[in-house]
């Protein structure tokens, strides 16, 4: 039962690869966006806020189709990318990572922003009275103190990427070895009548990966909590 076929092994590695790169895109952009929304005031802020949240409220297929129009070989950005850098994202694993990143982005931004919004802003002011510039304050105070939110956001984004289906299949299709992640492979297997073992195997892998991610996040969260010294806060 547990002799995995090439398709399944490929799907497993591809899923991890796509999720990893999706988080890698989401994390820096998400933190910057969250900081912008939480700390800065500028005209058109509502528009940025809306754009960030769009993937959360739109059907994933719509997001996938929009990506295709934008980043496809003949799309506005896609043709430019192809002509200038010879990069193709549509129907490749890179495209799958982008689709996942777009879908996960609002989750990342929301988690980090919540952390930034609830943080004691007075600490940032205090740091500046001690001679720290805005950049130093961000790196040494704001960022470390929003670590719990960043961690939550990363886990949410990673989980979202593991399960991304609609936007991915619309944007980059379902190509074994290139864009066929576990959910897409599982979908394929369920469409074929007969032996359900491959589907059950993928299901098991999914559950194991998800559990591993949860446990890792829990361990990390504990570590961060200890570092922030919040363990004793409840006693006071």
């Amino acid at each position: 039962m547990f002799n995995l076929t090439t398709i399944e092994i490929d799907a497993f590695y591809l899923t991890l690869k796509v999720a990893f790169f999706s988080v890698a895109i989401c994390l820096p952009l998400g933190v910057i966006t969250a900081f912008t929304l939480s700390r800065l005031n500028f005209p058109g802020k509502w528009l940025l806020d809306g754009l960030v949240h769009l993937p959360l409220v739109m059907p994933p297929v719509v997001v996938g189709y929009m990506l295709l129009l934008l980043l496809g070989r003949r799309g506005v950005l896609g043709s430019w990318l192809y002509d200038t850098f010879d990069i193709t994202v549509a129907f490749t694993w890179k495209g799958a990572a982008i689709a996942s990143a777009v879908m996960a982005f609002p989750l990342m931004v929301r988690a980090v922003r919540l952390s930034l919004d609830t943080m004691d802003r007075g600490l940032e002011v205090a740091a500046r009275t001690l001679g720290a510039s805005r950049t130093i304050v961000f790196l040494s105070i704001t960022l470390p103190l929003s670590l719990p939110g960043i961690l939550t956001g990363t886990i949410l984004a990673f989980a979202r990427s593991l399960g991304e289906f609609g936007a991915t299949i619309t944007f980059v299709s379902n190509i074994p070895g290139e864009t066929q992640t576990i959910p897409l492979a599982l979908y394929n297997f369920t469409q074929i009548p007969g032996d359900q073992t491959p589907a059950i195997r993928l299901l098991t892998i999914s559950v194991v990966v998800a559990f591993a991610a949860l446990i890792a996040s829990d361990l990390l969260a504990r570590k961060v909590k200890n570092r922030l010294g919040t363990k004793f806060e409840a006693d006071q």
């Binding site: 004691d120 007075g122 600490l123 002011v125 205090a126 740091a127 500046r128 009275t129 001690l130 001679g131 720290a132 510039s133 040494s140 105070i141 470390p144 103190l145 570092r227 922030l228 010294g229 919040t230």
Partner: peptide
Amino acid sequence: LPIEKRGIGYVFQDGRLFPHMSVEENLDFG
């Protein structure tokens, strides 16, 4: 002049120690 360039020390009513740093790291920050 930005706050950090004014060369002033400020003790806040609520202390505002950095929770992720030890007492010594707090002292060393400025």
